[in-house]
Amino acid sequence: MISSADYFNSLYDACDDPWGFRNRWYERRKRLLTLALLPREHYRCAFEPGCGNGELSAQLAGRCDHLLAADLNETAVRLAAGRVASASHVRVERRSVPHEWPEGAFDLIVISELAYYLSAPDLERLAERIKASLTPDGTLLACHWRRPFDAAPQSAASVHALFDTRCGLKRVVRYEDADVLLDVWSRDLRSVAEHEGLA
């Protein structure tokens, strides 16, 4: 990451919820949008790098048989582990992506507020990791803040454009407003109604 571990350490040293995940309506709304845009109700095995303090992880847990949540910051890992402690099918690990990418295949990968911190080469590497580890019926969801800020060398638009061209997937849904960009890609292009045999 271009923003060193020290950047995130300083944020968590000041507060255990530096982005207001628990209390801000923007963050709660973003999680609701994230969950609503997933085309399948349930996933077998999901990976959520950059899980922060685990607020989204706790909600993804109800949609997955197995969830691996990970973060670079040790405090975030501890907080996330506490947040999902009652969910035995969720593991929380300290990992720096894309370099410490887990083994195995995932049918859901959620990249939320993470990829714009990466250098251009690491962003390319992240797209390669996603492409290699997503199952044939898998879903990639990316969600990023659209407004520029100093710690992010990439924009939401550039991150999502790279995923669009490098991950070997087709976009199935997009949501955007002045603040946030969410995209969902898959190799399975069936709609929600088609999944349920209604269309």
Rank of each mutant, 00 (worst) to 15 (best):
I2A: 06
S3N: 08
Y12A: 11
D16Q: 13
W19K: 14
F21A: 14
F21E: 11
R22Y: 14
T34C: 02
T34A: 02
T34N: 01
L35F: 01
L38P: 02
L38N: 01
E41I: 07
E41N: 10
Y43K: 09
Y43E: 02
E48Q: 13
P49K: 10
P49A: 11
G52K: 08
N53Y: 12
Q59R: 07
A61Q: 13
G62A: 07
G62D: 03
G62E: 04
R63Q: 15
D65Q: 14
D65K: 06
L68N: 13
D71S: 14
D71C: 15
N73F: 09
N73R: 09
T75I: 12
A80I: 13
R83Q: 15
A85H: 08
S86T: 14
V97S: 12
P98F: 06
G104Q: 08
L108S: 03
L108A: 04
I111M: 12
Y116T: 11
L118E: 13
P121I: 15
L126Y: 12
L140N: 08
H144A: 01
P148N: 01
F149W: 08
S155A: 01
R166N: 04
R171I: 09
R174S: 01
D177C: 02
D177K: 01
A178S: 10
E194G: 00
A199Y: 12
